[in-house]
Write a protein that binds this DNA or RNA. Structure first.
Length: 393
DNA sequence: CCTCCACAGGAAGCGCAGGAGT
DNA sequence: ACTCCTGCGCTTCCTGTGGAGG
């Protein structure tokens, strides 16, 4: 690619580079009519000025939760004769009750948006604002599991319904973690889960449709082979049914084809992109890890290379947790870093597991009373390479 | 059978940083 | 500018589990 092409955003393939962005909202969302309708029905009372049911939306990444919700919000904004106001809050950024409130205030009451006001004051402005013309208010809490004091947040928002004389507040919560439901206070749970909606992963043919739509919206004609799209959707469907992953494959393949000055994107580029994307995902996951989790992971990778013990399918090498910890201690010391306690490393191990970098299982019968057997889900060489680079080992 | 080993994971508590309230 | 409070990362302590060995 020439520099001027990059600057002017000229591409041999793309009319609109945005179609490949994870934030791009296509004109019509495919395969999610039912889900969209369910959201519409859930918020319909709110739009009529009554208090609707709160809705909880669950689904894995790249299943269209956020897209669908944003679409419905857009629809609301096109209706002019209703007294409903909406705030979309990404809780990854606004991750506490206070922050969520300041976000809502700055969306609608910008005079109070500057910092320095306490929560009770903001809460009263919020109540006054709803009461002034009996409006209804809808908050969308995306990635709601990121909120530290979610119990308090949900309580405060739902209490607003008791404090206002007219109008009301409804909540839509979105999450990709199912397990966090158990952590919640029972009252919070029943408030938030008045209505529930699950997004299932896309199947291969649906991913194909989604990719095809993007190609039609943003690519020049005859630049992408259908076979390539089918292949990319098959890969993504097999992995997780994640549309974002499928799009990433297409984006990377486009990049590769541009570099090689090809005229068409074929299966071959997708295949190459796949390797790239997978490595990028692993590298990204590892490099964003806290230092000591990296060291622990490194220790597991080292132990794994030397271990000859195989797990059931005979492919995965397993590591005993004690062994990994010993190695972690010596690695830390050789780097002049104070090693963390064993208790905390157990937490690290479950963190690494929930990130999908390792898998663990109880030893069960036969081996060492009660221990965890750890196996890496990615090649140890790759993991070692990334971490060695970081610590210049 | 009892004790010891090797480990899991809960509970309490500690120091710190940063934000809220004054 | 000050203290007070709270969440966070972490350690220490503790209880529980199951195999190995006397």
């Amino acid at each position: 690619m020439e520099l001027k092409d990059i600057v002017t955003n000229e591409s041999a393939f793309l009319k609109d580079r945005n179609v490949l962005s994870p934030h791009y909202l296509p004109n019509t969302l495919l395969y999610r009519d039912e889900e969209m309708n369910k959201i519409r029905y859930a918020i319909a009372p709110t739009l009529k000025g009554e208090r609707g049911k709160n809705l909880f939306i669950y689904g894995k990444t790249g299943t269209g939760k956020t897209c669908c919700t944003k679409k419905v919000i857009e629809e609301i904004k096109t209706i002019t004769d209703i007294k409903t106001k909406v705030s979309y809050v990404n809780c990854r950024i606004y991750n506490s009750r206070y922050r969520v409130f300041t976000k809502i205030i700055s969306d609608h009451l910008s005079t109070y948006a500057k910092s320095g006001y306490g929560l009770p004051f903001l809460y009263e402005r919020f109540i006054d604002w709803i009461e002034e013309d009996g409006k209804t208010f809808l908050v969308v809490l995306d990635e709601v599991d990121m909120v530290k004091d979610l119990d308090e947040l949900v309580y405060t928002l739902s209490r607003a319904n008791d404090d206002v004389k007219s109008g009301g507040v409804s909540i839509i919560g979105i999450s990709n973690k199912l397990s966090f439901k158990e952590r919640l206070d029972p009252r919070t749970r029943s408030t938030l889960y008045e209505d529930e909606l699950v997004f299932t992963p896309y199947i291969s043919s649906q991913l194909f449709g989604i990719l095809k739509q993007r190609v039609e919206e943003g690519f020049k004609e005859n630049t992408v082979e259908e076979e390539a799209l089918a292949y990319a959707s098959a890969i993504a469907a097999k992995e997780s049914g994640d549309a974002r992953y499928a799009l990433k494959l297409l984006a990377k393949a486009t990049e590769l084809a541009e570099q090689k000055k090809l005229s068409k994107i074929t299966k071959k580029e997708i295949d190459e992109a796949r390797k790239n994307v997978e490595e990028e995902i692993i590298d990204e996951a590892i490099t964003t890890l806290p230092e000591h989790q990296q060291l622990l992971l490194y220790a597991i990778a080292c132990s794994s290379e030397k271990s000859f013990q195989k797990l059931n399918d005979g492919k995965e090498r397993i590591v005993f947790s004690g062994e990994a910890y010993d190695r972690y201690i010596s690695i830390s010391k050789s780097l002049k870093k104070e090693p963390k306690s064993i208790r905390w490393c157990r937490e690290y191990i479950s963190d690494l597991e929930s990130l999908g970098l390792i898998r663990t299982q109880e030893s069960g019968k036969g081996i060492r009373g009660h221990t965890k057997l750890i196996s890496l889900l990615y090649p140890p060489e790759r993991i070692k390479k990334v971490i060695e680079k970081k610590f210049s080992l």
